[in-house]
């Protein structure tokens, strides 16, 4: 770990002001950033500790759910309104990491965690995301865990967050703030960028900008939502494939249908092709099978991860079946 200056402001405005400096990173729960610091993947000159600024409220009412960025994963997962009105969020969080990590990790930090790609996290490898232009050995290398959707010739790193998949299905909006600028809101579906030729740029966040809150609209579909995570180990592992489904079914017909997937994309992956195939249709098993067979159109497997194409379709199907049962 390289030396840094640790700033510990007690006001959000101070934190934003300090965070606007060059070579500065915010630290929230620290569960991912500490790993990256220890592995010299991140070498900021300054850390801005957000612990003192508050920003940890969870508010649920008729207008929707507002999760402030420093709310802990475990607190959000345990929140009774979240469990009742947006179950896919609680399920995704409880399928994440371990109880200790969830006690530390925050909502904002979770959405900004970096990929688990082993080539990215080890400075002994080349990596376009870490050192732009150095190359991507993962594409022809050990890529079982890597993305089949959204990749480029420069990067196929999987986005690792479970929460982001659930929020993508629910059309969540992120509230962003930066010193000197008015707060702005960005839908989560527009927040993450595809790697393209610049895999080092992962989101639309501007320098010095932070996520201050996540806003989730209420909906009948959200109340009937479900998260499925498939992995080798029964717990404490990142997803091979995951699926988040929110369904509003009336008289057996799909009204509002949201489907997103994790473990397969370079960002949380919304599946409009599946949604379109079910909207306004009777949700019988044949319809669900037909729709889920469309999941992952345009997938580009790299070799070891080819099985994710099949697994994605089956995960989507199972989650649709569960949510429509």
């Amino acid at each position: 770990m390289q030396a840094f200056h640790l700033a510990q402001p007690t006001m959000l405005l101070d934190a934003l002001a300090i965070g606007n400096a060059a070579d500065t990173k915010f630290i929230a729960g620290g569960t991912d950033l500490m790993q990256l610091l220890k592995d010299n993947v991140e070498t900021p000159a300054q850390l801005v500790d957000l612990e003192g600024v508050g920003l940890s409220q969870i508010r649920a009412d008729a207008s929707g759910l507002r999760l402030e960025a420093m709310a802990r994963m475990s607190d959000v997962a345990a929140h009774l309104d979240v469990r009742a009105q947006w179950p896919v969020i609680a399920q995704a969080l409880e399928a994440s990491a371990s109880p200790q990590v969830r006690n530390m990790g925050t909502i904002g930090g979770n959405l900004l965690q970096r990929t688990r790609c082993g080539y990215f996290r080890d400075t002994g490898f080349n990596c376009n995301k870490r050192e732009p232009g150095s190359g991507c050995p993962a594409i022809a290398g050990e890529n079982r865990m890597l993305a089949i959707l959204g990749g480029s010739d420069h990067c196929i790193a999987t986005h690792a967050s479970d929460l982001a998949v659930a929020l993508t299905a629910l059309d969540a909006v992120l509230e962003l703030r930066r010193a000197g600028d008015a707060p702005r809101q960005v839908p989560i579906t527009e927040f993450y960028r595809l790697p393209g030729t610049t895999p080092q740029i992962e989101t639309v966040l501007r320098p010095g900008e932070m996520i201050t809150a996540v806003i989730v609209p209420p909906s009948a579909a959200a109340r009937n939502s479900h998260y499925l995570k498939l992995r080798d180990r029964a717990s404490f592992e990142f997803a091979l494939v995951s699926a988040a489904v929110a369904l509003d079914v009336r008289d057996g017909t799909g009204r509002d249908i949201r489907v997103a997937a994790g473990g397969v994309g370079t960002r949380p992956w919304r599946l409009p092709e599946v949604e379109a195939a079910l909207r306004g249709k009777k949700l019988n098993d044949d319809a669900l099978r037909e729709a889920s067979s469309r999941a992952g159109e345009g997938a580009r497997p790299a070799g070891q991860n080819a099985f994710k194409q099949i697994l994605l379709r089956r995960a989507v199907l199972r989650t649709l079946q569960t949510a429509s049962a």
């Binding site: 688990r116 082993g118 080539y119 996290r121 080890d122 002994g124 490898f125 050995p137 022809a140 290398g141 050990e142 079982r144 865990m145 592992e237 990142f238």
Partner: peptide
């Protein structure tokens, strides 16, 4: 243990992967 075929470097040298 996964070994990178090009460099012989271990890709999952940690107890998470």
């Amino acid at each position: 243990t996964h070994v990178d075929g090009e460099t012989g470097r271990i890709v999952n040298a940690n107890i998470a992967e």
